[in-house]
Design a protein around this nucleic acid. Sequence first.
DNA 1: GGTCGATATTGACCCAGATCAAACGGCTTG
DNA 2: CAAGCCGTTTGATCTGGGTCAATATCGACC
Lengths: 247, 247
Amino acid sequence: MPSQNVIPITLTSLKAACSQCNLRELCLPYGLSEAEIAQLDHLVGGRRKVKRGHHLYRAGDPFEAIYAIKMGFFKTDILLEDGRDQVTGFQMAGEILGMDGIGTDFHTCNSIALEDSEICIIPFGQLEHLSREVQTLQRHFHQVMSREIVRDHGVMMLLGTMRAEERLAAFLLNLSQRFTARGYSPQEFHLRMTREEIGSYLGLKLETVSRSFSRFQDDGLISVHQKHVRILDAAGLKRLLNHQTAL
Amino acid sequence: MPSQNVIPITLTSLKAACSQCNLRELCLPYGLSEAEIAQLDHLVGGRRKVKRGHHLYRAGDPFEAIYAIKMGFFKTDILLEDGRDQVTGFQMAGEILGMDGIGTDFHTCNSIALEDSEICIIPFGQLEHLSREVQTLQRHFHQVMSREIVRDHGVMMLLGTMRAEERLAAFLLNLSQRFTARGYSPQEFHLRMTREEIGSYLGLKLETVSRSFSRFQDDGLISVHQKHVRILDAAGLKRLLNHQTAL
DNA sequence: GGTCGATATTGACCCAGATCAAACGGCTTG
DNA sequence: CAAGCCGTTTGATCTGGGTCAATATCGACC
């Protein structure tokens, strides 16, 4: 069923592949020369639109490709047999999805669009093939995977050692930083996810997330109305983070 | 200073490189043909012994190589400026260390031997070079990285959704399974880490770890004396894990 | 073999965040 | 524009695990 929505790359649409893509500074081609990016254009096996609420892939799906987000917003989550589930990440334009599947030949988590999105399909065989020829691509792909590992370590740190408000502050600052890198305002943004999804990601209940938001607002750190967030005192949020809790 | 302890590969010692190593079914060469493993022997840049309590590398060290554990036991941890720290993993023979450094050219965590250990140095440039030529090696290296990501997701799940005793049960079952894969007893093993290190990894205080151990013992699931653990009822531990908590 | 510091166990108490519950706001839909 | 639903906010109460503290045990080193 995914193939229905796949937009095959044609000569005209190729114009908009990596070499023309304004995300190339954030995405896989980062750091590649013009010539190398030209080679990379052949890498993109097609595009696919994913409507809000729909899956890009599900846990158990055979692994065939990784995906670069062209536009939109995703979450990944894991669902255990006993009903427990956890959001393992939120991904935005320029970020790579699907690397969880490389190790087992099937995906190990679900990837769900939180808004109408579009992704570039990167058939994994082709990526490996091309990265045997383009050293810079190989290197860069390894860096992307490694950074995912480091990001996960950061989340483990957050879940293992931080209290609720610290987690939320870290979350907001991280979002702000990533929006900034994409040319959006660092202070003001729209949350694509619910309080429950934030809570799941941060290991908190939605009520705690909501209460912490209110607390931040009362303290003049942010202003929140529903999904709209404005950061009023980024330094204050950072202070909250670095503040010695114990010792 | 690391270079002092490096044992260079000589013609005689080469005999004991990957093609002769009894860990090759667990380590990087897994799945490679005899001929490919022969090529791989050139990959190992040397060996290094790391005494208990000593660092293999530290956060901030320049990234040059990844390491395969030949024998011994390690932990990785992250230390934040504010003094918080967290153990991000425990690694045993056949497992790969150092992939956190690929993305940034310096290591992002500390790797510390929990017993006298020996590792194989795999210079990363050489690994990338060889994996451009040996497709199976390339594929396998990608799988190793991906599995690290999946493992981290598992830990996030554990930290985000499980209660103390579930975390410890999952931890013990995971250790048991890994020891089994290495030919050791699934029921009986020696913990190389302290209660505090287990707690740090599981997002718990050492007192909670100790209490949970005692509880398991009272319930006849395990027997513990200091670092010696014997699993008496693995099924019981698994039941503890899958047990519906909420809903 | 005795001393000392690190590690482990156990108890008593407390609190951050979970849980339960109610009400509200903003959507979509007829 | 009313109805209904989902997501959110806020309050009241409960509890798992943190904190503090005392004691026990182990292993390393004179």
